[in-house]
Design a protein around this nucleic acid. Sequence first.
DNA 1: CCGAGGACGCCCCTATAGGATTTGACCATG
DNA 2: CATGGTCAAATCCTATAGGGGCGTCCTCGG
Lengths: 243, 243
Amino acid sequence: MQKASIGPKSGSQPAVRADRKGGRTVSRQVLADHVYEELLASLMDGRLEPGAAVSIDGTARELDVSPTPVREALARLEHTGMVRRVALKGYRVAPVFTREDFAELMEARLAIEPVNARLACARLTPERFAELEQAVEDLKSAPRGPSFAEYKDYLEADERFHQLIAQQTGNQFMVSAYAALGGQVQRFRLFGGVGITDAEYAIAEHQSVLDALAAGHPEQAEAAMADHVQKVRARAMADAPAD
Amino acid sequence: MQKASIGPKSGSQPAVRADRKGGRTVSRQVLADHVYEELLASLMDGRLEPGAAVSIDGTARELDVSPTPVREALARLEHTGMVRRVALKGYRVAPVFTREDFAELMEARLAIEPVNARLACARLTPERFAELEQAVEDLKSAPRGPSFAEYKDYLEADERFHQLIAQQTGNQFMVSAYAALGGQVQRFRLFGGVGITDAEYAIAEHQSVLDALAAGHPEQAEAAMADHVQKVRARAMADAPAD
DNA sequence: CCGAGGACGCCCCTATAGGATTTGACCATG
DNA sequence: CATGGTCAAATCCTATAGGGGCGTCCTCGG
């Protein structure tokens, strides 16, 4: 192994590296975690396209690690639905969504996200509310060019908003239920062809949710979120190529 | 390695075994899958108690495999919430539920399962309905002794009923959303102290859901399921030791 | 044109080494 | 005698290296 990188002298570098951030040891990183995050980032920003093979050995070479941590990272990743595994054949990036997949995804979001909004309303703290406001601000100010790279920030803020609400429920199960969907939603935003036309309306809808939360009206927040998800679905079903 | 089991002569047995079931090759099993299922079974039927350490090396020795497939199995298992991992410290079986955890779990079920019942109603096929009926029958006929082992079948049928409804939605995301909760629910049934007193009422509630499905009334099915989950919560919160 | 054969790549798993942490015994001290 | 501290062994996590088996692709000869 050992490509042209900082080569340990004999393949026995310390198994663990104390990653430091801001001069303080954050939490000792394990190689598999690093691989996981690297793969996740590639998945989420479109570097790894749907259907592409994710070779264990290849990834290991690329990241200059042995296959074992890559296997572990992929095993975790599989559970998110972003990669699929076929025994003895390896991993592939999950295929693009069909219209049916998308409809199912939105149906699931519709079951979960309005409830999240309602629950979040009851437990909202000022700090968390500020974070939500920030996310909406970022949505408004993010550049929205025609290429993916140009509105990556927009997508990121969108995802962040929904994630924050899930976290705000204070319910670990709702958080992970949303997390399971959120990754897919984000991937769909990238590859499913959600147009930028989405943005103008979506911002207003996010604002409505935020307003309801600010006013402390759980039912209204729930309704606003349901409305948002339904409209996202309607817009996407209209825009998306009839596959 | 190599304990006193059917010993391959030099540590190079075929990496793959074509598992046969009913005379036909089902799908070639990978060792990691076997380990996964073994661990899952231990977790679900109470052999592995909450808080217990799940050593990689130890499990490997016990199942007579090398650590690598165990690592992979545990990595997948972690995402189910049944085991927790601390970097460089290893895996432990997730701790017992607190009252708060339980409340959160039921809140999440309340968000997801009634929706499942409603969706399932629309897409119910006769075969699947028969399976649901069977599950309720099994609930009624399962022995309900005082020890865990004696009403294991009861718990299994209970879990099966809810799982079938999730599958019946035809929505992959709802299936996995429920799956994420189902494992925890099952574990709580084992360790959380859901009494057998639960059974008499629960059977009637399941029957109500089934009736609504049979009648083809989605809203009624949704309401019946919501009612069931709420009552399960109420009974458990009353029974469970105030921890 | 086509089929056989070999080379390559990949998955899966074993064996094993290194570093860290815990355990337990043993000894010195109050 | 009890107690605390220290050092060594055991245990565990983490990661690497390597090998077996299988599929695939490319080439080369008919």
